[in-house]
Amino acid sequence: MSPSLGFGANEDRSLQVLWADGEYVLHRTERGDTDDHQLVLALMATAKHSPSTSLQRLAHEYALKDELDETWAVRPLQLVHERGRTMLLLEDPGGEPLARLLDGPMDLSSFLSLAVGIAKALGSLHECGLVHKDIKPANIMVGCNDGLVRLTGFGLASRLPRERPAPDPPEAIAGTLAYMAPEQTGRMNRSIDSRSDLYAFGVTLYQMVTGTLPFTASEPLEWVHCHIARRPLAPVVRTPTVPPPVSQIIMKLLAKTAEERYQTALGVENDLRRCLVEWERVQRIEPFPLARQDLPDRLLIPEKLYGRGREVDTLLAAFDRVVGSGRPELIL
């Protein structure tokens, strides 16, 4: 028998909406009998008759429950059906999604502390052999009761160390376009791996420290173009109070090719932790060489093109023209 979640006459009193993005809603509610008062999180698709892909992602996240550790992930508890709705119940570590805190630039101490915590959680995820594929502020729980940062939203997570994405139409690409790594769009003939999560982490850090995303777009194809072809303004240019080393760390995470990014979450965690220690000690961060402790834990064969710089530039220029004018072009 499915546990009662309190839907009905007392729904407004028993449910707290933590986040809604149009596809899913995350609630905090009580589970079990009224004498128990155990708080849980309930994730459900927005529509009562949800597309099969949304329900499949809930089922996929539940299937990963034994691979997710409570120290760095919000662990699934049960997949339940109630009143025609499918919901994924998750442990409630306290706190709230990071997305609720992003109403402007964060102060640097809070930013660096959270950034280190996110990097640590990402490193633990990758050590388990998982690639998240949808890192974004809505899938990061902060302010937890024990002070740790936890990841959630594993509906797209992959056990494959490398995965070749299909070139789906932009509006059908799985994931969140605003935070998506270039290779995840399926337009670069490159594989998705753990470094794709690091790009999304870079977008998240950019938003945390500047209050804005590195790119703005109004339609899926424009988002794809931004991630593949446009270079964002450095955070220090957009927000002059950002220390240059922090800006450089973020820009390295946002490199278009995976080989130019940090190779591991541990590597970026070490650099962020150094920034945090210096800032708390002297309120200043001196420049230092990045990624000195960023040692890949496995062999990563580069997938970039060699000796085709002019051809790549020609293709990117044509792509820019087509996006800007709407007129098709044929290139041989």
Rank of each mutant, 00 (worst) to 15 (best):
S14R: 13
V116T: 04
T71I: 03
R150V: 11
D146Y: 06
V282M: 09
A63P: 09
E70S: 15
P137V: 07
R308P: 00
I301Q: 13
L148H: 14
L55P: 03
I331Q: 10
H126F: 08
F154I: 07
R100D: 15
L90N: 07
A9R: 14
T264R: 03
W72C: 02
Q207C: 09
T212C: 13
L68A: 07
E61D: 13
Q207V: 07
A217Y: 02
P169A: 15
Q78G: 10
V142M: 06
P328S: 11
V149P: 01
M188A: 15
R327D: 11
D33K: 11
E311S: 12
D134N: 14
S325Q: 09
L64N: 08
A63F: 04
L89Y: 04
L254R: 00
L276E: 12
L233E: 14
W72G: 05
P235F: 01
G84F: 10
D12S: 15
A20H: 10
A115I: 03
S124W: 12
H60M: 08
R187H: 10
M208A: 13
M106W: 12
A45M: 04
S109Y: 10
G32V: 00
V236Q: 12
P232Y: 13
E269I: 06
Q248D: 14
L305W: 15
P328H: 05
G117Y: 03
D92Q: 02
I250Q: 07
F111A: 01
M251V: 05
D21R: 02
L290Q: 06
L177Q: 06
E30A: 06
R281M: 03
H49E: 14
A20Q: 14
E222Q: 08
L266K: 09
T29C: 15
L177N: 06
D21M: 08
N139K: 03
A59Y: 09
D134Y: 00
D271K: 00
T46K: 13
D271V: 02
N145F: 15
P169W: 08
G326H: 01
V237P: 01
P167T: 09
A42H: 04
A166D: 13
G202E: 06
L332V: 06
A9E: 15
G129Q: 13
L58H: 04
A115D: 03
A119W: 00
V116I: 03
K65S: 14
F7N: 11
L130G: 10
L300M: 08
T216C: 05
K65A: 15
M208D: 10
F201H: 00
Y206K: 09
M180P: 05
A178G: 07
Q248T: 02
R238S: 10
P3Q: 08
R13Q: 12
V25A: 11
I249H: 01
K48S: 13
S194L: 14
S194E: 15
G211H: 01
L101A: 15
P97T: 08
